[in-house]
Design a protein around this nucleic acid. Structure first.
Lengths: 342, 342
DNA sequence: CGGCGTTCCGAAAAGGTTTTCGGAGGCTTT
DNA sequence: AAAGCCTCCGAAAACCTTTTCGGAACGCCG
């Protein structure tokens, strides 16, 4: 295989080298490479050729030092291991990549000290802006340090109302979910939620109840709060079937809870979706498509949320800084657990 | 809440400002702040105080420009969405964070063009090194561009044997898995693997067969290759039980496959682990701990792999560049599906 | 032929930090 | 008192690129 030599130690070519090889001054070389005018076509060509020959790549540090802009942003997650950060991060990376920006990734691991440390490092690197990704939709304290670049909070809004935050529309998600179940002809709908301590859980309940009321329906039983896990889904479904055997739809707080619910339903001999429709939240592919039947779920559009945050940061960098909390719409992904396969 | 003002537009304090406020030259200020000697204690104190007052933070660009080192590394993933990149990334971020390095994250999305583009951008930013994270353990082509900084390949090794690659020990993992099953008293062991196209699948088979042979045992039935998904686990288990009803342990290619196998076993009335022990691969928490019983699995130690890659890159940056493929050991995480709860 | 406009190129400054080296001052020793 | 040493500080260069501005060369018009 013809792989190019990697000359360790021979420092990278500089603009001076290019200029010398092309027989012009550095000023001319710079203008030629950056498409400025006041350079003749033939000279420009000579410079380009010299640059290619030396595989010249301009030093972004020097450029950034001069321009006052580095073309970098910091992406500060509080919990990378959770499954919500990653899609947001991908969306942001996507949006920035297209804009020729580079992303510094920092994970604070839920530790305020570490977070402050990372912010300091990012500011020292003169990032043009910051995205702070939370690990739950509960509001979080704003950054502690004095930050003189724009900041966008994603997923978890800042507690400070003047900050710009981008969050999923969980109330709307709860509403959409119930509306979908009603559209599938269900009228006796129960809700097995997740951890009551999370605003995401409570917001979805709010939306779900509102949609029921709009349709002149009432929830079957009480909202069952518990955890986000499969085991809770199995247990809660069991209790629900004992108390409210006539239920014909179960909205679950997460896909994992839904998986547990599906298990219990199968063991109890209830058919899905014929007897009971089941719906999850988060649209976690590995959970939804592995289930029998495949699981209808609400996608929070996190990748879109990440992109939105990135675009908002862009705007804040070279225009005016937005304020307040903006929401990103969720969407229902219909699969076999609510609608029979065509 | 007393939040510090964020003076947009007022450019950050520079060393010159600090020096002026402290009544010394920039040279002295620099030495004072960096702990160099040839500065009197009282002067140093005055400078520190001035720096604190202006909340001075040194411009890393200027520093990097001069030092020829930026304290940044590029982390280039080929598929961030896959679930293997993230733990590696976390391990690397962890190792670098401790060493005052910052990480540029780039996702090539499996596209060679985009990868080249990102490499160019990273080189232009003068990263001190590069970690390339693959999406499967199959060897990948080395970076196309001429790269004059150290590169470490993680998870997917480089096709070029002179490059440094850090990969999980899949052969050893297969061996450990079988050894665990044997230690649990199983002798009629079957293997429902994943996608034959992946070297990870084939390597684990190699290790598993070697361990069986060492114990004087033979595999029950043939290795069943298929996909990595739950559906395959259900189907393959069904076929296996028809053909080889006496099986007392099933080693699965992934935790998802194992979940499918567990479902089928329950439907067929086989108890786990009393009648049949089941074991997965990857130790994906949400899969293993949600299962009934909880699933024994092989953890590939990906976070450790990421840390190892980061440390190897460190060494390559300020010492000699290692060569060849290094493996990271896996480990068995025992849960209820192979060993009854104590 | 002088003046003028146009076109192209180069010198130099700027951006912020680190390092080197020389200089200033104080103190000790002969 | 002269010489020498030590401690502390500051001037200036270096890193690399971009931009500004002045200057040179040339063609054209009066």
């Amino acid at each position: 295989m013809a792989r190019p030599p990697a000359p360790r130690g021979t420092r990278a070519a500089t603009l001076t080298d290019v200029a010398r090889l092309a027989g012009v001054s550095v000023a001319t070389a710079s203008k030629a490479l950056n498409g400025r005018n006041h350079v003749s076509a033939v000279t420009r060509e000579r410079v380009m050729e010299a640059a290619a020959q030396l595989s010249f790549s301009p030093n972004s540090l020097a450029r950034g030092l001069l321009a006052g802009r580095t073309g970098t942003v910091g992406l500060l997650t509080s919990d990378l291991v959770g499954r919500f950060s990653l899609p947001i991060l991908m969306g942001a990376e996507d949006a920035f990549g297209a804009g020729e920006m580079s992303v510094f990734l920092c994970d604070a691991r839920g530790d305020a000290i570490r977070e402050r440390h990372h912010v300091q490092a990012l500011l020292s690197r003169r990032v043009d802006g910051l995205i702070v990704v939370g690990s739950s939709t509960d509001p979080r304290p704003p950054l502690a340090a004095a930050v003189d670049v724009p900041v966008v909070y994603a997923y978890a809004p800042s507690e400070h109302p003047e900050d710009l935050s981008i969050v999923p529309d969980n109330v709307g998600a709860g509403r959409m979910a119930v509306e979908h179940l009603i559209a599938c002809g269900r009228t006796r709908i129960a809700h097995i939620s997740g951890d009551r301590g999370y605003s995401a859980a409570r917001d979805r309940v709010t939306g779900a109840l509102a949609a029921l009321e709009d349709a002149g329906l009432a929830l079957v039983g009480d909202v069952a709060y518990g955890t986000w896990e499969e085991g809770w889904g199995r247990a809660a479904a069991s209790m629900l079937l004992d108390r409210e055997p006539e239920v014909d739809a179960i909205l679950c707080g997460s896909d994992q809870v839904a998986r547990g619910v599906l298990d219990t339903l199968r063991e109890r001999g209830r058919r899905v979706p014929e007897d009971v429709a089941v719906m999850g939240f988060d649209d976690w592919q590995v959970m939804t498509t592995g289930a029998r039947p495949q699981l209808t779920s609400v996608d929070m559009n996190l990748e879109e949320l990440g992109r939105t945050a990135a675009r908002a940061l862009f705007e804040a960098i070279d225009a005016e800084h937005g304020r307040g909390v903006r929401t990103v719409q969720c969407r229902v992904v219909v699969r076999g657990s609510t609608a029979p396969e065509a």
